[in-house]
Amino acid sequence: MDNAIYVGVSRQIILEREMDITANNLANVNTVGFKFESMISNDDPATMPTLGQPPTTVNFVAGVGVARDFTEGSLVQTGSPLDVAIEGRGFFQINTPSGPRYTRDGRFRVDATGTIVDQDGDQVDGGGSIVLDPKKGPVAISATGDVSQSGQNVGKITMVNFESLSALSKDGANQFRNDSNLTPTTATASMRQGFLEQSNVDPVRQITRLIEVSRAYDSMSNMLSATDDLSTTAVQRLGAVNPS
């Protein structure tokens, strides 16, 4: 009897998480290189001991993981020479003080020493740092990531890939962290100078998800109320000394 309430609550907990994830997707609808996520849940069967009856199986709802959709976002032309987008599978490598991070946010700039860095001032990996000379004129970045100034090669932006993208976890600041034992491989995707990859959040889908989640939550709530009513009625009926 109480199982119905617990099953309903297990579903509601997952729905709340799903709501949090949808809210995060919509908050990042304008974040360059953002990849949207959704909750994966499945049934979590548990066998309940029941007095005098054969045991029944109750399916709770459990969250298994967060699915990250690595579909490419649309590429938007910005014209800025240090904006780079990756077309295909691959990540830029950023050398942060806490180790390498991976990102598809290619909004680079140069720091006071001429080194190519990301928006947080961390070095963009090119097998080391890539240093530009402001006196050598415009920067050209080829599809393979080779950086050149007035025809002279000054470095190559590293582009890596992972066999399984689910090994990556999000670290905030548009970056991914690799905590698994997978080693990054060289990516074969191509870079586009002067373009940025937009967030791949599809607003219509997310708003629809929002409606679905809130309706499912409502129906679970109704079920909880109905179950509660049932118990109340049962207690009243059974407890009546002189049933009329």
């Binding site: 998480r17 995060n24 908050a27 990042n28 993981g65 967060v66 689910s166 976890s169 999000k170």
Partner: peptide, 8 residues
């Protein structure tokens, strides 16, 4: 766990 649960 294939992908973990991370909430932004």
């Amino acid at each position: 766990v294939p992908s973990g649960v991370q909430i932004g």
